[in-house]
Amino acid sequence: MSAENRKYPRRRVLKSGVVIFNNRHSTMDCTVRNLSEGGALLVFARPPTLPERFSLRFEDGSEFPCRKAWQSAMSIGVAFLNVEAAPPPSAAPPAQAAEPRREPVEVRIGGTVVYATGPDGSAAPPLDAERKAQVMKALADALAQIGAA
């Protein structure tokens, strides 16, 4: 069947998905390669062994009941069972989660702080010549102690 005869036009996408089956006791990761209001193309890292019906969960947490329409060695075409609730075939990536809060970092050699970030986790300022000399001496002293042990 040509693309013009399809009931729902496909859009190329590259999304992570998880197939859920066996009364929600089993999962299998997949990549969603195309998507329409009526179904999707799922690609797997290894040959999938799946039941005829299962759920497909997208990376945004949305989940849709599916049935196998066809299968090849590493791919499965699925039809969404509830087309009215099917995902929109948007190629736009999902909204990014807020960036995790960064914690301050402090690295010491011996008792000397050789690297530290700001209280908000921001990068440490570059070392001036005097501070760089202190860090290099602390490092040399620590290496000498290791060599003596």
Rank of each mutant, 00 (worst) to 15 (best):
M1Y: 05
S2T: 14
S2H: 11
A3P: 01
E4F: 06
N5F: 11
R6Q: 08
R6M: 05
K7L: 03
K7G: 01
Y8E: 00
R10L: 05
R11K: 01
R12V: 04
R12S: 05
V13F: 04
V13D: 03
L14V: 13
K15V: 00
V18H: 01
I20G: 06
I20S: 05
F21G: 04
C30K: 01
V32W: 02
N34C: 08
N34K: 08
L35W: 01
G38E: 04
G38F: 00
G38I: 09
G39D: 10
A40N: 01
A40G: 09
L41K: 07
L41T: 06
L41N: 11
L42K: 01
L42N: 02
V43R: 10
F44N: 12
F44T: 11
A45H: 08
R46N: 11
T49W: 04
T49C: 06
E52M: 08
R53T: 07
F54Y: 09
F54M: 08
S55R: 09
L56C: 03
R57I: 11
F58L: 14
F58R: 05
F58Q: 07
E59I: 00
D60P: 00
D60G: 00
S62L: 03
E63Q: 10
E63N: 06
F64D: 01
F64A: 02
C66R: 15
C66E: 05
R67E: 13
R67D: 04
R67T: 12
K68Q: 13
K68G: 01
K68V: 13
A69F: 00
W70A: 14
Q71F: 07
S72D: 13
S72G: 10
M74R: 14
G77N: 05
G77S: 07
F80Q: 11
L81Q: 10
L81T: 08
L81R: 07
N82I: 08
V83F: 01
E84S: 09
A85E: 12
P88T: 11
P88D: 12
P88Q: 13
P88N: 12
P89I: 05
P89D: 05
P93D: 03
P93W: 03
P94Y: 06
A95K: 06
Q96P: 00
Q96D: 02
A97H: 03
A98M: 06
P100K: 04
R101G: 02
R101V: 10
R102A: 12
E103I: 14
E103A: 15
P104Y: 07
V105F: 10
V105T: 11
V105L: 15
E106R: 10
V107I: 13
V107K: 02
V107Y: 00
V107M: 04
V107R: 01
I109H: 00
I109R: 11
T112E: 15
V113D: 05
A116T: 03
T117W: 01
T117I: 02
T117L: 02
G118R: 09
G118V: 00
P119M: 10
A123L: 14
A124F: 01
P126K: 07
P126T: 00
E130I: 14
E130A: 15
R131W: 02
R131E: 12
R131Y: 05
R131Q: 11
K132D: 07
A133G: 13
Q134M: 14
Q134V: 13
M136D: 15
K137G: 08
A138I: 07
L139G: 07
L139T: 11
A140D: 12
D141F: 05
Q145Y: 04
I146S: 14
I146L: 15
A148K: 09
A148R: 09
